[in-house]
Amino acid sequence: MRRKRAAGEPQWFFRRLVAIGVIGFAAWRLMMLESAPDTRVNETIAWGWILLMATVVLGYLGFASAQDIVAIFATRSGTPYAALDDPTDPPERPSEPPRNFAG
């Protein structure tokens, strides 16, 4: 069941799409290096791809945490993206003016 997104809550779809794309490409390149000759250059390239994947994952999580911290400070609330509660008391009706009965 999907929950309705509260106002101001960040969308994760595009971030997740980019992160998964970069990690998938890096993993594919690492698989291509598996059958390559064992040289110092290929070892350096493999370490570069592994560092790229680690940077993307840590950046994805780190920037999300930083965005949440900024929202907490901005709203001064521990749950900055929580939906506002509905008021429990109905709004008061304006009082009717007294009727003047002439007798």
Results as ranks from 00 to 15, higher is better:
95 S>A: 13
25 F>W: 12
74 A>F: 04
45 I>E: 04
13 F>H: 06
82 A>C: 00
84 L>E: 15
27 A>C: 07
63 F>H: 06
103 G>L: 09
102 A>F: 05
5 R>V: 14
89 D>E: 13
37 P>R: 00
32 M>Q: 14
40 R>K: 05
67 Q>C: 02
50 I>M: 13
101 F>N: 05
30 L>C: 09
26 A>P: 01
95 S>F: 06
67 Q>I: 04
31 M>F: 11
11 Q>S: 15
88 T>I: 14
79 T>G: 02
72 I>C: 10
10 P>I: 00
49 W>M: 06
69 I>L: 15
30 L>P: 00
3 R>D: 10
52 L>D: 00
100 N>V: 12
9 E>H: 06
25 F>H: 01
83 A>Q: 13
7 A>C: 06
8 G>A: 09
72 I>F: 01
64 A>T: 14
56 V>Q: 06
54 A>K: 03
22 V>N: 01
24 G>K: 02
10 P>D: 03
20 I>P: 00
44 T>C: 07
37 P>A: 08
3 R>W: 13
71 A>W: 00
29 R>Q: 13
56 V>I: 15
65 S>Y: 08
94 P>R: 08
81 Y>H: 14
7 A>W: 04
88 T>Q: 11
68 D>P: 02
40 R>S: 14
38 D>Q: 10
82 A>G: 10
1 M>S: 13
61 L>D: 04
43 E>K: 09
19 A>D: 10
98 P>L: 10
79 T>K: 07
39 T>W: 09
85 D>P: 02
90 P>V: 07
69 I>N: 12
65 S>W: 04
53 M>Q: 07
1 M>C: 05
90 P>E: 11
54 A>P: 00
38 D>L: 09
23 I>H: 03
57 V>P: 03
24 G>T: 07
58 L>K: 00
76 R>K: 14
16 R>N: 10
43 E>M: 03
94 P>D: 08
38 D>Y: 03
51 L>P: 06
83 A>F: 03
4 K>I: 12
26 A>S: 13
76 R>N: 14
91 P>D: 11
78 G>D: 11
20 I>L: 12
46 A>D: 03
35 S>H: 07
14 F>W: 12
50 I>W: 01
10 P>M: 10
62 G>A: 11
38 D>P: 02
45 I>A: 05
14 F>R: 09
68 D>E: 13
63 F>Q: 08
62 G>I: 00
20 I>T: 13
58 L>C: 12
43 E>L: 09
100 N>R: 06
94 P>N: 03
8 G>T: 01
38 D>E: 12
56 V>K: 02
20 I>Q: 03
100 N>G: 00
26 A>H: 00
78 G>T: 09
59 G>F: 08
55 T>S: 14
77 S>D: 15
37 P>N: 02
100 N>T: 06
17 L>E: 12
98 P>D: 11
28 W>F: 15
58 L>T: 09
95 S>D: 10
23 I>Q: 02
81 Y>Q: 06
41 V>W: 04
